[in-house]
């Protein structure tokens, strides 16, 4: 494992910690898209099925369990916590997630490394992760009042994707057999989706203004 991969994983972990802190400390999930969170949970459930049949390292196993548990906790809070669920922007968070899930599933059936159930679910999780942030980005454009924790959450997620690309570039040169074009293309698309957000985040930050995204 290289430094970019580790830094990427830690940023990913921090993004989830920030989100859980926001929910638990402020008892509010305002500005957070439940649809994005549910898709992340689905991504982890499909991808980490390999917990049952393959072992990579203790680090991998522990991280997978943390990601599963924390994303399930976030979805639980937003859907079922008596106080938190009242702060959910139900009327604003209207992105149709089947428009993302169905195409990803079809694409995973058509383009994959091996036509087996676990491999197709794994591929599906790669495709879905690439676009799962979209409802969150749309929600942030609609609610012009983005709080700091939400902004930092998305910033950390975007940074995690950027670091993973550096990790792949590093692996491309250091591991001759590492040629994952399927993962690369999805990952590049995913990082590109954050481009706009990054632009406005730093623009507002430089001029000391509150973060807003133009509609």
């Amino acid at each position: 494992m290289n430094i970019f991969r580790l830094a990427g994983d830690m940023t990913h972990l921090m993004s989830i910690v920030v989100l859980l802190l926001k929910i638990r400390a402020t008892k509010s999930c305002r500005g957070i898209s439940l649809r994005t969170q549910e898709m992340y949970l689905l991504v982890f459930l499909c991808r980490y099925l390999d917990l049952f049949y393959s072992f990579v390292s203790l680090y991998n196993t522990v991280m997978k369990l943390i990601f599963l548990a924390s994303s399930a906790a976030i979805v639980y809070y937003m859907r079922y916590d008596r106080v938190v669920k009242q702060t959910y922007d139900r009327r604003q968070d209207t992105f149709r997630y089947l428009f993302l899930i169905v195409p990803c599933l079809i694409l995973a059936l058509l383009i994959n490394h091996a036509f087996t159930l676990t491999e197709i679910l794994w591929t599906f999780s790669i495709y879905l992760e690439a676009v799962a942030i979209l409802p969150q980005l749309v929600l942030m454009q609609r609610t012009q009042n983005i709080d700091n924790l939400t902004g930092n959450y998305v910033l950390l997620l975007g940074t995690y994707r950027g670091l993973y690309i550096l990790n792949w570039i590093f692996r491309f040169f250091t591991e001759p057999h590492y040629r994952q074009w399927l993962v690369w293309i999805s990952g590049l698309l995913q990082t590109a989706l954050y481009g706009d957000f990054f632009y406005y985040y730093f623009k507002c930050w430089k001029s000391n203004k509150k973060l807003t995204l133009p509609a």
């Binding site: 991969r5 994983d9 990913h12 390999d50 393959s54 990579v56 390292s57 991998n60 991280m63 997978k64 990601f67 490394h113 091996a114 491999e119 794994w122 993973y164 990790n167 591991e175 057999h177 590492y178 040629r179 994952q180 399927l182 993962v183």
Partner: peptide, 10 residues
């Protein structure tokens, strides 16, 4: 082996 390589990431 090509597929196994990517599965070591999270």
């Amino acid at each position: 082996a090509a597929t196994a390589a990517a599965h070591d990431e999270l």
